[in-house]
Design a binder for these strands. Sequence first.
DNA 1: AGATTGACTAACC
DNA 2: AGGTTAGCCAATC
Length: 110
Amino acid sequence: MDKERKPTVFESRVYEAVSQIPSGKISTYRDIARVLSIASPRAVGQALRRNPFAPQVPCHRVVCADGKIGGFFGESAGALIEAKKRMLREEGVIFHEDRVDLQRCLHSWH
DNA sequence: AGATTGACTAACC
DNA sequence: AGGTTAGCCAATC
């Protein structure tokens, strides 16, 4: 069993930002990184990858900068990706095949 | 403390 | 157009 480490300030910031995304909207690693004043979206992925707050954080609303679904579920769960896509679509997110309508569903960070 | 990775992105070939 | 390289930041080993 993995011991849950205490989230760092950086991670907490990521979780907070992601949890701020309302239903029907999404965001990209790049955008989140940008809001967090980070130059590396990888660091964001790192935080989400650890995701100590599992379903509490809508990490499924976070996609690649291209609108493509990130690998948060991994290739082993490709089918789940479609399920998430369908779920997001029901939330109001416009999907185009394997991509998301960033210009339409991108969350406004004000 | 140093080296590697990691759910990325963008640029280069 | 598609594959590869490089850059980036933070966490983990």
